[in-house]
C-alpha cells in the first residue's frame, strides 16, 4: 500500500495513546484484514465513495489531465495554435532563467512559511485552549484575519511597512535602525513581508486544526510532566508536540501546498511586475504572466510550468512525510 504511508500522516486528531505507540506497525505491516471488511461485498465501499469520486474525478482530475495534454502543445489563450510540439515546452522551461527564479522563490517561500505555520498556530492553540474568562472572544478575534478581505488587508499592510509607516517609524525611534527598511523594494524582504502576511492570515486557520487535536492529548500526561518539574516550555516540547505530531504533519502538507501556490500576497505587495524587475515572482505568478496574456500568452508553456509546480508539490509532500517518519523513529 504505497498510499497508506500518506494516509497515516494525514490522521488529524489521532489519540495520543496511539501516537506514542509507533503507528508504523499499524500502517506498514501487512496484516489480516480486519473483521468488518470480511462482511463487506466488493461494491459497498464504492457506493460510499461514489459521489466524492465522481465530482472529484470530473472536476478535479479531468482538468488536470487536460493540462498535462496542453503542456505538449502550443495552445494560445484565445484558441489559436494547439498543435502538438512534443517536449518543446519542457526543454524551453529547463533553459528559462525566469522559471528557475520562480522555482527558487516558491521554494524559499515554502521553506520559510511552513515551519512558522506549523509551530505558531500550535502555540496559539495552546494559548487559547484552556478555558479562562473571555476565551471565546479571544479565539474568535484570533480567527478574524482568516476571513478578512484581501483587498482591504493589503491596503493596511502596505501602509504598515512603508518607509514612513508605523513599523519603520517605531524601529527608528527605538534606535535599532537608522534608515527605513526597504520592505517593499528589496526582493528578499518583499518575499519575507509576503510570508508574514500569509502567516498572519493563516494563524487562525491552522489554529482550529490544532484545537481539535489538542482535545485528544491526555490531561494526565501534563500532570505527570508537571510533577516531574517540567515547566511550560518543556511540557510543550515533551507532551504537546508528540501528542499532535500527526496534525503537525497535516498542517505542514497543507501549508506547503498553500505556500507553493502563493500569488495574491506577492501581487498585492510587489505590484503587477512581481517585485522590482519581476524578481519576486513565484511559480503561479509566472504561470499567469506566461499563459494568460490574450495576445502573446502561451497556454502550452503555462501548462508545462503547472506540471512542474505539481511535481514540486508532490516532492514537498514526500519530503514532509520523510521528515515526519524520521522523528517517529
Amino acid at each position: 500500500m504505497a498510499t497508506d504511508v500518506y494516509a497515516g500522516t494525514l490522521a488529524a486528531g489521532e489519540p495520543a495513546a496511539k501516537v506514542t505507540r509507533p503507528s508504523r506497525t499499524r500502517s506498514r505491516r501487512p496484516r489480516p484484514t480486519s473483521g468488518a471488511a470480511l462482511y463487506r461485498p466488493w461494491w459497498t465501499p464504492w457506493l460510499w465513495v461514489a459521489p466524492a469520486i465522481i465530482v472529484i474525478g470530473v472536476f478535479g482530475v479531468f482538468p488536470f489531465l487536460n493540462t498535462i495534454v496542453l503542456s505538449f502543445t502550443d495552445a494560445r489563450p484565445l484558441g489559436g495554435g494547439g498543435d502538438w510540439v512534443g517536449l518543446d515546452n519542457y526543454s524551453r522551461m529547463v533553459a528559462d532563467p525566469a522559471f528557475w527564479l520562480a522555482v527558487r522563490n516558491s521554494v524559499l517561500y515554502a521553506v520559510v512559511a511552513v515551519p512558522l505555520l506549523v509551530v505558531l498556530p500550535l502555540m496559539l492553540a495552546q494559548l487559547v485552549y484552556k478555558k479562562v474568562p473571555a476565551i471565546g472572544f479571544f479565539r474568535t478575534a484570533f480567527y478574524a484575519p482568516v476571513v478578512a478581505s484581501m483587498v482591504a488587508v493589503a491596503l493596511v499592510w502596505q501602509n504598515l511597512v512603508s518607509e514612513n509607516g508605523p513599523v519603520n517609524t517605531a524601529l527608528m525611534q527605538v534606535g535599532i535602525i537608522h534608515s527605513p527598511i526597504p520592505f517593499l523594494s528589496d526582493t528578499t524582504l518583499l518575499l519575507l513581508t509576503a510570508v508574514a502576511l500569509t502567516v498572519w492570515k493563516g494563524l487562525g486557520w491552522y489554529m482550529i486544526f490544532y484545537l481539535s487535536a489538542l482535545a485528544s492529548v491526555p490531561k494526565d500526561l501534563y500532570e505527570a510532566a508537571s510533577l516531574d518539574g517540567a515547566g511550560t516550555f518543556r511540557q510543550f516540547v515533551h507532551v504537546t508536540v508528540p501528542g499532535v505530531r500527526l496534525t503537525m504533519l497535516l498542517v505542514g502538507i497543507m501549508s506547503g501546498i498553500g505556500s507553493l501556490r502563493v500569488f495574491t500576497e506577492i501581487y498585492i505587495l510587489g505590484g503587477a511586475t512581481g517585485g522590482v524587475g519581476g524578481q519576486a515572482r513565484t511559480l503561479p505568478f509566472y504561470i499567469r504572466d506566461v499563459a494568460l496574456d490574450p495576445i502573446s500568452g502561451n497556454v502550452g508553456y503555462g501548462a508545462a510550468i503547472s506540471v512542474a509546480l505539481f511535481v514540486l508539490t508532490i516532492g514537498l509532500a514526500v519530503a514532509s512525510h520523510k521528515l515526519g517518519s524520521k522523528e517517529e523513529d
Binding site: 512603508s162 514612513n164 517585485g275
Partner: peptide, 20 residues
C-alpha cells in the same frame, strides 16, 4: 521618489491625497 513604491501598485490617489 518614495523608495518603496518602485514596484508595488501603491495607488497614486492615496499618496497624493495624503500630501505625500
Amino acid at each position: 521618489l518614495p523608495k518603496d513604491t518602485l514596484s508595488s501598485d501603491v495607488d497614486v490617489t492615496q499618496l497624493y491625497s495624503a500630501g505625500d
